[in-house]
Simulated scan of single mutants.
Amino acid sequence: MGRHRRGARREVTVADLIDALRRYPADMEVRLATQPRMPQEHSIGAIAEADGLVWIGEGRQEGYASDGVAERLGWR
């Protein structure tokens, strides 16, 4: 999600996000990983629409994501 087969970036739509999340149990918690070189783990904050986009706000930093998370995200 977020990249075409040839590696070119593309925008993720609401439908893309819903489809990706459907693979997981509805009661699983969601985290946001940022900064590929030192992956940080953040909770999800507010979700809102503005300027024709859906925004997912950062809640709080929970710590650092594991090496396994970075590998699964394709960062290592």
Rank of each mutant, 00 (worst) to 15 (best):
1 M>C: 05
1 M>H: 09
1 M>A: 13
2 G>C: 05
5 R>Y: 07
5 R>C: 01
5 R>K: 12
6 R>A: 07
6 R>K: 10
6 R>V: 04
8 A>R: 09
8 A>Q: 12
9 R>H: 11
10 R>P: 00
11 E>I: 00
11 E>G: 03
14 V>L: 13
15 A>L: 09
16 D>W: 10
17 L>P: 00
19 D>V: 04
20 A>M: 05
21 L>D: 09
22 R>N: 11
23 R>V: 08
23 R>A: 15
23 R>S: 12
23 R>L: 12
24 Y>P: 00
24 Y>Q: 06
24 Y>W: 15
25 P>I: 09
25 P>G: 08
25 P>Q: 12
25 P>S: 14
26 A>I: 05
26 A>P: 04
29 E>F: 05
30 V>C: 07
30 V>R: 11
30 V>I: 15
32 L>I: 15
32 L>C: 10
32 L>H: 02
33 A>I: 04
34 T>M: 07
34 T>L: 09
34 T>A: 13
35 Q>G: 08
36 P>T: 10
37 R>G: 08
37 R>L: 13
38 M>E: 14
38 M>V: 13
39 P>K: 05
41 E>C: 13
41 E>D: 15
42 H>M: 11
42 H>V: 04
43 S>P: 03
44 I>W: 02
44 I>Q: 04
45 G>A: 03
46 A>V: 07
47 I>D: 00
48 A>Q: 09
50 A>H: 11
51 D>E: 14
53 L>M: 10
54 V>S: 01
55 W>A: 00
55 W>G: 00
56 I>D: 04
57 G>K: 05
57 G>D: 12
57 G>Y: 12
57 G>N: 07
58 E>F: 13
58 E>M: 11
58 E>C: 10
58 E>V: 13
61 Q>Y: 03
63 G>W: 06
63 G>F: 04
64 Y>M: 07
65 A>D: 02
66 S>W: 03
69 V>I: 14
69 V>N: 00
70 A>L: 01
72 R>D: 13
72 R>V: 12
73 L>E: 13
73 L>N: 10
73 L>Q: 11
74 G>L: 07
75 W>K: 02
75 W>F: 06
75 W>C: 03
75 W>D: 04
76 R>T: 14
